[in-house]
Design a protein around this nucleic acid. Structure first.
Lengths: 221, 221
DNA sequence: AGATCATTCAAGCGATGTCTTGAATAATAG
DNA sequence: CTATTATTCAAGACATCGCTTGAATGATCT
């Protein structure tokens, strides 16, 4: 077993932290927060090679942050439970609260604009009910199809400039993406505000929205 | 600055996780959860060399988990804020929820006994008020002196066997130590139960007790 | 059973992290 | 100013991690 039980315990805790200590694995967790995925899909989304992706996933599994099941010849991974999401969120909160570096990066993303406060999920739900807001889903279209906020319109960053004329200039626009780790919504809001639109970001992303128990619309293939 | 802002952000989050990924640094954080400390005191408590300890502390500072101030020729470190404690706790919860390995280690500590559920801090506070419980602080005496639960009696694991006869066999005994990362209380409960006493562990340790805003008694030198 | 596809394993390379040792810096005491 | 004490810096040895490449495993389909 080990020399000292105390050290052995700390080693186990450290193992979980170490699993979160590589950007590639954080990307994988962000993808898995959208829903369960196979290895190949994850590799494509994150830009990792298949073998490398598989190895990272196994490290995440060793730390019990994700679990896997077989489906035919594919192996499907998913977050073990909501605690994994909580841990990711707290990690982000601590990093953002304390590191000036993070603020500088986010400010750079906003193109120098002072980004407005994000809209809370509860507020967006209320505004949606009264139809006084335009919701924009800035994730890739396949992720939009796999589940989105009812009433949300889909447009990637690349498509954003094209659909600008079709967006209402009087109503407020709320953009969201994969979640707090994702920067699409930050960039979308920056672009929209540069064009004079009244845009804000949703707090969190689709995984957090779903975790709240709010409705998600799935396109049937 | 960087290739991609997205990667740069993830790198920052990973930095915080990496700071938590070494057992030595978890030990340091556990010590700092007791209160602020100088480098030498931390080195002695953790068994690290001074230089090594200093390097670990600087990594924790880079991740903004701890902050430091000068006091004369000494540099005093402390946890940045309660979020650091939260992050440590969540890390532990995820590790314990999911890793069978952790259970095995804890079971080993309990000497094979099935350890009873820990006592919550609220329950202990109520029992203390009515005097129906004996509280045992199993940390080293210097840490006891620096602050303990009012009414608690101090005894290290080594002293435990000696004071056994002086412990009431009818009342319940609640043992606590540095916190969830610390195994003293687990071991103390195992020892006491082996001798037929009705002992349980306090949920969390002194840092969590203090964080709840509950009273802490400090011995004046 | 043989062929095929998705995933995992295994080995190797460069980069990074940990710990040790010894010197350098910063603040106080004499 | 010099000596002292507490901490940090710097360099080296050694292990681990992350990524790549190519082969091995496991499950399905013909």
């Amino acid at each position: 077993m080990s020399i000292s039980p105390k050290l052995a315990l700390l080693e186990e805790y450290a193992l979980v932290a170490r699993a979160l200590s590589a950007p590639a694995r954080l990307m994988l967790l962000e993808q898995l927060a959208q829903g369960e995925r196979g290895v190949e899909a994850l590799a494509e989304k994150t830009g990792l090679t298949i073998a490398n992706c598989s190895q990272h996933l196994q490290q995440l599994r060793r730390a019990a942050l994700v679990t896997s099941r077989r489906d035919g010849k594919a192996v499907i991974y998913r977050l073990t439970d909501a605690k994994t999401l909580e841990l990711m969120d707290l990690l982000r909160i601590v990093a953002e609260r304390n590191l000036a570096q993070v603020e500088r990066i986010l400010r750079g993303l906003s193109g120098g604009y002072d980004a407005p406060e994000p809209v809370s999920r509860a507020v967006l739900a209320a505004r949606l009910a009264e139809g006084s807001v335009t919701v924009l889903d800035v994730r890739p279209s396949d992720e939009y199809a796999a589940g989105h906020i009812p009433g949300a319109r889909n447009a990637t960053l690349a498509q954003l400039e094209q659909i600008l004329p079709t967006l209402a200039h009087d109503a407020e626009i709320v953009a969201y993406c994969r979640g707090p780790y994702c920067v699409y919504a930050h960039q979308a809001v920056a672009t929209l505000r540069r064009h004079g639109l009244n845009a804000r970001r949703l707090e969190g992303g689709l995984p957090e929205w779903r975790e709240d128990g709010r409705p998600v619309l799935i396109d049937v293939g």
